[in-house]
Design a protein around this nucleic acid. Sequence first.
DNA 1: TCCCCTTCCACTTTTGAATTGG
DNA 2: ACCAATTCAAAAGTGGAAGGGG
Length: 455
Amino acid sequence: MQSIRDFKPNFSGPPPSSMAAGPDAYLQGNMRMTLEDPELWKNFHEIGTEMIITKPGRRMFPHCKINLSGLIPCAKYILLVDMVPVDGFRYKWNKEKWEVAGKAEPQPPCRTYLHPDSPAPGSHWMKQSVSFLKLKLTNNTLDQHGHIILHSMHRYHPRFHIVQADDLFSVRWSVFQTFTFPETSFTAVTAYQNTKITKLKIDHNPFAKGFRDEGTTKKRRSNKTPACLEKRAKTSGALIRDSEDSPTDFCRSSYEGYDGEEGDLPKRKEVDGVKEERYSPWAADREPSVRTESPAGAEPRDIYNTEQLVPAPASYQPYRFHEYGKSPSPSSSVGSSSSSGSGRSSFESRVPDVATVPDHDPSKPRTHEDYPGVLNMTMAQAGKPAVIGHHIYSPYGGEQPLGQWSGAGPAQYPHPPPPPPHLTTDYSTQAVHHGYHHGNVAEWSQYPLFSYSCW
DNA sequence: TCCCCTTCCACTTTTGAATTGG
DNA sequence: ACCAATTCAAAAGTGGAAGGGG
């Protein structure tokens, strides 16, 4: 179990409420969610987790795997994951740590990953761990595979939503709860910046075995026959490189800021006493500026109930990009709510990101007064993202979810059904835009629930 | 020049169809 | 004919590194 203090350096700021440190398990109401492989996650988190994002989509590693308990065995639930910016900044890797490199870019379309088993009875979710292995991250804003779209060099953290609903149609009427784990936050990158992270990934990811120092790596190197090199040179136009001294050398300069333990990173746990020094990847001195960007004061997160109804929706706004300059990032607020501040209290129930999406005149600027408390919060408005829309995240806003969910579980709908009759033409179009027409069942299960900007 | 992104490579694991044996 | 176990090839997933663009 890590204390709040443990995480702080990595976030270079008060941890988001949702990121508030604490045990690896959440207890909300009767529901309990536990993160699997917490130690592995922590190992990464201590260094500053990075996740590769690519155009075709890249899996996470470590991937999100959770255990659930406290669900009603016979009731059906839907499990969702989405990614929330940790703050409103863009970062760069400078020497041995991450530094702010400016404001965050406008958020890409917000997407949510629906677990392929959804909907399934509580007993199903509880009988074994729930893996989100196939969740993929992309930097392709035009992605049509339903992958979660992120910006490179930005920080995010996953949120897990549990929705009690018999089918996808009834989700918006359902109670749902949101869980986050501090150690799962990460920086999206197109190439690894921190060599420690690279090594950790190589050491733990079976697909990267070929890059491990011992044995296989050498084999791999030696396998680079002249023929291979020639072939490569021919195809890529690259010169034959000296394969002897290029790869798998982790003792690069970026390592020098660390205490030279790159050789045994995976076993670092026993040196917890010096944890904070390893957090160095995050520049800790930029705190003040960070906070100013966040609607910290307005963070009502902690007053939220742990359960909320999600009643009728309203208009939905396709492809709404909101400008960070005008509105704080979801996560920044999330972070600010770290009223949490310390330890366990902050880790207690907060199921904030629930809201309804009443019709609202987009031209009418929203104020805090427009949000009458924990319920009936509106989604971000076009051009004027909800000031607190991030924490009042409204995944089921509008009828859009219906459009995307109109196919229930893969089993029921081998082919995505047409949008409900009441949906507008635009609506259907949007769905198609997101690969709605794919016939592939597995694909279908990955379609975004909230594929549009939702804060 | 620097930073970041894209692309290709070699390697590994995973997956699923085909084959084999009882 | 059926089923389980095994084999094998293709697909998918890795990080490294070069090259390109802004």
